[in-house]
Design a protein around this nucleic acid. Structure first.
Lengths: 228, 228
DNA sequence: CCAAAAGTGTTTGTCCTACACCCATGA
DNA sequence: TCATGGGTGTAGGACAAACACTTTTGG
């Protein structure tokens, strides 16, 4: 038995792909590979297929663009204005992804002419894609205040100066590094390695790894009206 | 120009409707009015129509069930498992709504056989609707820690004991009332009225109104890694 | 005058902030 | 030896938590 007489709609997934290269927070966008509006800057997206769920569609799209499995991926929002896609009405489920740019394995200038743009230099994108990017950044700031998601943008081994620079980029504000180190180490999430990264200074900075198990949700401590 | 050869899908909106009557936090559900699986408990939902956006669909659905315009409504999540709806594949965009039960204007036992259930006594719902309810409660707890959304569940004039009881229900934990009053009043959001509500005690409790303008986002103060 | 709910302060500890210098090392 | 970035400590203030009694008033 089916639902009779109900109109069906196109459903797409669009991916807001953030990356960090140790220096800048960046967004990966493509030149739209299909007509119409071909070659305009756009988020990477695609239509949801018959036997995949929404996360599956997002994973497929990310894999095809970046060559990466196992990317941090989170649903952002569903966009459904009847006029948002000027070609034909399409519901878009937006996802954001966080990846370490160094892991990005595809050649640039491939089929999609994908390019990394610094966040502040992202050009005009088609449809409501710029709005999606803004919403994604807001959500990341929100999430990162409570959960250790920014580590997804870093390699497994990273230094504290790298981590701090990342936080500074995400929140677009300078952070006192003594306070930062105290907070981040007192959270118990980091495991110090014996190696140092000497690529940025003569003294070298110790590498750390994230201890995902030790990270306890800090959520309760943010509930200002609720006692622990 | 259209997109060629893309499969379209059914897109529905389901509403998780929370209400508060001054005593209990409740959920409004209906007996499914259509075949198949008719008369099973279900969230109120409907298909997205051709010329409405997602918020518009959610508003339409809420109005038809509750008779209320101007309800607090927020998109929760898009659900897209190909098997989530056992009748036919349907993408569901879930919204949650917060309403003051006393404003609810429709008769119960109408076309939909709608009923308010205490949150802890909600029965098995069809499809993934119980999962949606759980996710909505989680999101409300999250949001309410940072934003004054719980006031949407109260009448314009409310007492502090009512407000505290609401917080206690939402977080399912007792709150010290001296600390609660200090926090809530120091936020500057409340305007004390001269009237008292004498329905619950001989002494009476002062009414308050919410000053929406004075409520400044408390978000920054929760960003533990970021200085003010 | 009493029962029942509303309302009120203080102390203690924790956590955030602001702030400036020494360390290690390769060139 | 010096230039460069990495790493360290402390004091003051603000905020959250714990905790118990007084006030009001209708019946």
């Amino acid at each position: 038995m089916k639902y009779a007489n109900q109109k069906k709609l196109l459903v797409a997934v669009d991916c807001i792909i953030f990356g960090y290269d140790g220096e800048d927070l960046k967004l990966l966008i493509i030149k739209r590979p299909i007509e119409p509006i071909r070659d305009q800057w756009s988020l990477m997206g695609g239509f949801v297929e018959e036997n995949e769920d929404l996360n599956g569609a997002a994973k497929r799209i990310l894999l095809s663009l970046t060559g990466l499995h196992d990317v941090y991926l989170e649903q952002l929002h569903a966009y459904g204005d009847p006029k948002r896609d000027s070609v034909e009405r399409t519901i878009s489920i937006a996802y954001f992804a966080l990846i370490d740019i160094k892991k990005y394995s595809k050649q640039l200038n491939n089929l999609y002419h994908a390019e990394w743009f610094k966040l502040k230099e992202v050009p005009k994108l088609i449809f409501d894609h710029n709005q999606m990017v803004t919403a994604a950044l807001d959500k990341i700031r929100y999430q990162a205040a409570l959960h250790p998601i920014l580590f997804e943008l870093l390699p497994k081994k990273f230094t504290i100066p790298q981590l701090q620079a990342l936080y500074e980029q995400v929140y677009d504000s300078p952070i006192d590094n003594r306070n930062f180190i105290r907070k981040i180490t007192s959270s118990g999430m980091l495991i110090k390695q014996n190696e140092k990264d000497k690529s940025n200074s003569r003294r070298g900075a110790f590498y750390f790894k994230l201890d995902k198990l030790k990270h306890r949700s800090q959520f309760q401590s943010f509930l200002n009206f609720i006692p622990k």
